[in-house]
């Protein structure tokens, strides 16, 4: 494994760990200020929507502020869907890393997410498409597209379920 592959893989693992352990502020710090966080909806059984501006997405946050909104709501303890908070375990695999060009690198990964809450245990899965950018020598997430393969959704879905 090259140093870059190691660095990218660590970053993706780190994100999963911070979500599962509810270290929300450190999680947000993995993202650039202008980071795009995009979970398309399914346009039909086989394809997701592909124009986030003009189609309906499950989540489409156009900067880090959108993630801050989510954390604000979780930490408020006033969200019906977030109290009690589901327990989650993300298992990330299949990390594939492109080449770094002008401080940017793309990567893909798969994730199985097991959660436990009022409905008992649920297992969901996502495909991740990352764009990473080097800021002050450190790789950060500038774009994360999550293809959430579930269609008929069970229970509320928040950033820690994806």
């Amino acid at each position: 494994m090259t140093d870059l592959q190691q660095e990218v893989t660590n970053l993706i693992y780190q994100e999963a760990t911070l979500l599962d352990r509810h270290h929300w502020d450190e999680w947000i710090d993995l993202y650039t200020e202008d980071a795009v966080y995009w979970v398309p909806s399914w346009a039909n059984e086989e394809e997701t929507t592909d124009n986030p501006e003009m189609n309906l997405n499950l989540i489409y946050l156009r900067n880090r502020g959108g993630l801050e909104d989510r954390v604000f709501r979780i930490e408020s303890r006033d969200s019906y869907a977030s109290v009690p908070l589901d327990r989650t375990v993300h298992v990330v695999g299949n990390v594939l890393t492109g080449n770094e060009k002008a401080g940017e690198v793309e990567a893909t990964a798969n994730c199985i997410i097991h959660s436990y809450g009022k409905k008992g245990g649920l297992t969901r899965a996502s495909l991740y498409d990352f764009k990473l950018r080097r800021e002050d020598g450190e790789l950060k997430i500038s774009q994360k597209k999550i293809t959430f393969i579930d269609d008929r959704l069970e229970g509320p879905i928040d950033v820690y379920h994806l």
Binding site: L58, I59, Y60, Y80, P156, I157
Partner: peptide, 28 residues
């Protein structure tokens, strides 16, 4: 397109179980 995008972003904020309001309705 500005109105359409605004309409969609408000929809996503509120009206989905992955959003920040319908999710709470569902739990209730």
């Amino acid at each position: 397109t500005k109105a359409r995008a605004g309409r969609l972003r408000k929809f996503e904020d509120f009206y989905l179980t992955a959003g920040m309001a319908t999710s709470d309705d569902l739990a209730a």
